[in-house]
Amino acid sequence: MANSTYTLLLITALCGLFGPSSGSLPGEPRMIELTWRLENGMPHWPGMVPYNFTIVDRNVIPDGFYLELNNIYLAEHTGTHLDAPAHFIQGAWRLDQVPLQNLAGPGVVVDVRDKTRDNPDYEIGPQDFQDWEREHGRIPDGSVLMLRTGWGEWYWEQGETAYLGTDTGNTTLLHFPGLHPEGAQWLADNRKMHVIGIDTGSMDNGQSVQKMSHRILLPKRVIFIENVGHLDQLPTTGSTVYAMPILIGQGSGGPARVFAIVDGRTSACSPLTSTFATVLLTLSSVILNVI
């Protein structure tokens, strides 16, 4: 019992000395980027215009000072972007009608990579959410629920074919995981999220034709984020996620800057620090016994 107490005290002291595992000072918030940068050649949905960035000017102009100007051309649903309810529901909120308070909330990450690893068409169902809640507790009201399939790791590294299943305009060749309609219905009936995000090209999986998960949740005024980036950086719980879109008038969606803030006061001490404390305690015990 004494050794356990000494270990806990030593770990606490070392955490205060070396700070949390994020490298932040104790109490200092940590910001996490969850957005893919817009860049020529990025994956885009079949049939939509690809993102195009062109340089207009990068020169010292005749007036004697340096000037940069660029043009961009893109579809609404490009890169990390939001789906407003109007995307699939006639008469529902368009992007500029979504209240700001509906675009932020406690971050929750449901990780299903073990299910998608051998099944690119996997659909996340009620059991996945129930299993998560047994371990972590109820998905909070007003949350930003992130679905981590692992597909985000392929967004840039392995190209459009790996990410979407095809680099052609043929949507029947799309293959990536998504939210099963039964999972969407379970969430609609039992939980009250503000936002659901996913690290794939669509909330419904690649082979979906009817897009039922969109049609089930968007009428509930749940906002979708698709092509979420860097979910490997987001803790399972303990963050606040913000999804800030370009305010496109009458838009059915739009590119967004999505990020999270983790309160440094709740950051855990690194495993290395804990191990170091245990080693120090063991050495001190040996030395004391020798003396």
Rank of each mutant, 00 (worst) to 15 (best):
Q250G: 04
W132E: 06
M31A: 10
Q101H: 14
H136E: 08
N289C: 10
T35H: 03
L179F: 03
V56Y: 00
N40A: 09
A75F: 10
G229P: 04
V222M: 02
G47V: 11
Q210C: 03
F129M: 10
D111P: 05
M244I: 14
E160S: 11
W93L: 14
T240Q: 13
R30A: 00
P140M: 12
V112M: 04
V258N: 07
A86E: 04
T240R: 14
G16Q: 12
N170Y: 05
L8R: 11
A268V: 12
M244F: 07
L34N: 05
G152C: 11
I287Q: 05
V144R: 05
P271R: 11
P177K: 12
A256H: 04
Q101L: 12
E182Y: 08
F259Y: 15
A277T: 02
G105A: 11
D232E: 15
E33N: 15
F224D: 03
M212K: 14
R37Y: 09
I198A: 05
I196M: 06
P120E: 12
A268H: 08
R113H: 06
I291R: 11
F224I: 10
A84G: 02
D83N: 13
R94W: 03
P219V: 04
V290T: 05
P29V: 09
R221L: 09
N52E: 15
N289S: 13
E153F: 06
T200Y: 11
G165S: 04
I261A: 08
I261M: 15
A260H: 09
F224R: 02
T78M: 14
T275R: 06
G197E: 04
T166I: 09
S202P: 00
A2N: 07
H214D: 14
G238P: 06
I216H: 00
G79E: 08
N52M: 10
Y122I: 07
H194V: 00
M31Q: 13
V98W: 00
P219M: 01
R37A: 13
V108S: 06
P29L: 07
I124Q: 13
I287C: 01
R30K: 08
I225S: 13
G251D: 10
F53M: 04
S202C: 09
G125Q: 06
M48T: 14
Q127D: 14
P120R: 14
P255D: 01
L103W: 00
T200D: 08
D189P: 04
R30M: 06
T7M: 02
A86F: 04
G251C: 06
M1T: 12
T171E: 13
G201P: 03
S239V: 10
T116K: 12
G251E: 08
V49I: 14
F65I: 10
H77I: 07
T240F: 13
R148A: 09
W156A: 09
R221I: 01
C269Q: 02
S4W: 03
L280G: 03
N52H: 15
A256S: 14
L217T: 07
I61K: 06
S208W: 05
G137E: 06
L234V: 05
